[in-house]
Design a protein around this nucleic acid. Structure first.
Lengths: 335, 335
DNA sequence: CCACCTCCCGCAACCGGCTCCGCTGATCGT
DNA sequence: ACGATCAGCGGAGCCGGTTGCGGGAGGTGG
């Protein structure tokens, strides 16, 4: 069994309370002599306070939970890293649950995290009301990250301007003279997906082009790969592809390469996220970048304001997208 | 404030103890009538047991912690996903700490996890004794994953046969007639890195080739990229590269492409990990695959045996590497 | 010499659940 | 009819901390 506060107290010849006073620079002052004895006892016994007991007493676990779709997608991996770095710096521990876009699993994790009394929740939701009901009941600090489901006005959100970002990407393709465009979109029930599709349509109609309906696939490499394979098999004319994730973009590149289509000469590709993985693709993906550092920093700061300062008014932060030029769009070629 | 057991008891007209009995199919039997009343009260009040309180009483948190280098590396991302899936299935929650190969950060996380009374620890260590001392003192179930630092005999390990895996990869390059080989290795203080270098040397000396010293860089894409850039700038003759991670392989591919070297015609590349990211590289990376599914399954099973069944004897599991053929080695070309 | 103040410190009540143990009333056997 | 047995339930201690409250020792001023 681990050494407890009581044993430290005994070793130092003081009461358990005093040990707490020393440890927390307690509510009460402690004499230099007693403090020294306690510190020495802590040192020799190797005492470490039990955070579970402390959490029970203080109703504060110093932990936050994050729900995200998966680890495989480079964008989410980068986001997880950025969030964890911020959490670590703020002395919070991060519990991660992946949902695999499964509402059942999301609910299960949500309940588990709430039961574990996490101080705050970072949610990249698969979307849908029922989950929000769960957190409303728990009245726990929440920040909706990366996506803001419909009906989430009551919660803080930190997102990129999805419609504008998509518009930027499509405008860029149009600027390269591409007219036979295809959009690889994400799971259709996600609000952010609909916003990106809206940006896609807006850019096309502004240019007087007909918008083919987006193809809804998963955000994964495999999703992009298969979608482009089908596209080509169907004989759809295409000289430009907008994918709503870098993972899809990487998958699309592979499918195009296998089909012997040159990028960007035959088909230009612009994707979404601006991940490092995209910068190492062949050719380098041109992508609307999400600043995951700012995303994470803002999200954690917002959460901390709610947890530590008791702020209750929801904050809505919208980040401005920036197009990161690579080689997949044709900027570096003659076109 | 949340609903507590006492309130449920009051609402059901029973004692708090009864509520526990019902919830846990308690140590004592409960009459059907009382059980029904309790369940109804739980339902109407929306009661959820506080896991922190439960954890304090039971000295059991149903959580495990995993320390890994980072989220960016596709191999670790896949490993994290596999581990989390296993943990979720076993009703454990996973806390992830990334070390960025920083011993200080690793120690900090380690202490935090121990203080939080996690039931078990999954450790992809940056290596070095001091950390092992920390866990030895805590006498907590540990599985050393992916890497087994020197002096870790007392702990359970689940690793791939690193030397054999490297040997496989290098033999394959040699089999393609490549003789000017270069090895991009990892941080030199990691035991697994030394084992892979040993496999590299073994394969070369068995073939009667001189082994150039491995180049120690980080496991990242950037590490592979920069190493190959320097390599080429130095004018080192090279017709084959063995990278000790897929991330490095992806970086190497980019550097080679930028330098106008064709893969596999001019330079063959074989990497390590067998990630999905590698299968989407251009060309597809040939790689010695680590079965992350089995890795994760074995690790969690071992941990659970220690936690739930009190097993104490350390287990040493060594997985057999398998070469996954892609296009970067030349198998699909004429060579 | 007494009243009073300061400085330290220990006692004990929590936080919310788990579970040992003892008590009650009913059932059963003879 | 009466003691033994047993199902069903509640009281209370405990897990390991935090913290309000009160009290003792020593010093100061009147």
């Amino acid at each position: 069994m681990a050494v407890t506060r009581a044993e430290v107290a005994r070793a130092a010849g003081v009461s358990p309370a005093l040990v707490s006073y020393v440890l927390n620079d307690g509510p009460r002052p402690v004499s230099a002599d007693a403090r020294a004895r306690v510190l020495r006892a802590i040192e020799t016994l190797g005492y470490r306070p039990n955070r579970v007991a402390r959490a029970l007493r203080q109703s504060r676990t110093n932990s936050i939970a994050m729900l995200m779709p998966d680890h495989q997608n480079p964008h989410f991996a980068e986001l997880a890293q950025a969030v964890e770095d911020e959490a670590f710096a703020a002395d919070y521990v991060l519990m991660i649950g992946t949902t695999a876009n499964d509402p059942e699993r999301e609910r299960s994790y949500l309940r588990s995290f709430l039961d574990r009394q996490v101080d705050g929740l970072l949610l990249i939701s698969v979307g849908g009301r029922p989950d929000l009901d769960l957190i409303t009941g728990a009245s726990i600090p929440v920040v909706l990250l990366d996506r803001a489901p419909a009906g989430s006005d009551g919660f803080s959100t930190v997102v990129i301007d999805n419609a504008r970002a998509a518009e930027l990407a499509v405008q860029h393709l149009l600027g390269h003279g591409r007219r036979s465009l295809v959009c690889l979109s994400g799971p259709p029930h996600i609000e952010a997906v609909r916003q990106r599709e809206q940006g896609w349509r807006r850019a096309l109609s502004a240019a007087g082009c007909a918008a083919s309906p987006p193809r809804n696939v998963t955000f994964s490499r495999d999703g992009g790969y298969r979608a482009v394979q089908e596209l080509l098999a169907e004989g759809v004319p295409v000289d430009g592809i907008f994918t709503t994730s870098d993972a899809q973009g990487i998958g699309a590149l592979r499918a195009l390469a296998e089909a012997g289509r040159r990028v960007p000469e035959d088909v230009a590709v612009v994707s979404f996220d601006g991940t490092e993985a995209g910068r190492y693709a062949q050719p380098v993906l041109t992508s609307v970048a999400q600043d995951v550092g700012t995303l994470a920093r803002t999200a954690i700061a917002t959460l901390r304001a709610q947890i530590e300062a008791g702020q209750t008014a929801p904050v809505h932060e919208v980040l401005v997208p920036a197009l990161r030029i690579g080689a997949s769009c044709g900027c570096h070629a003659g076109s």
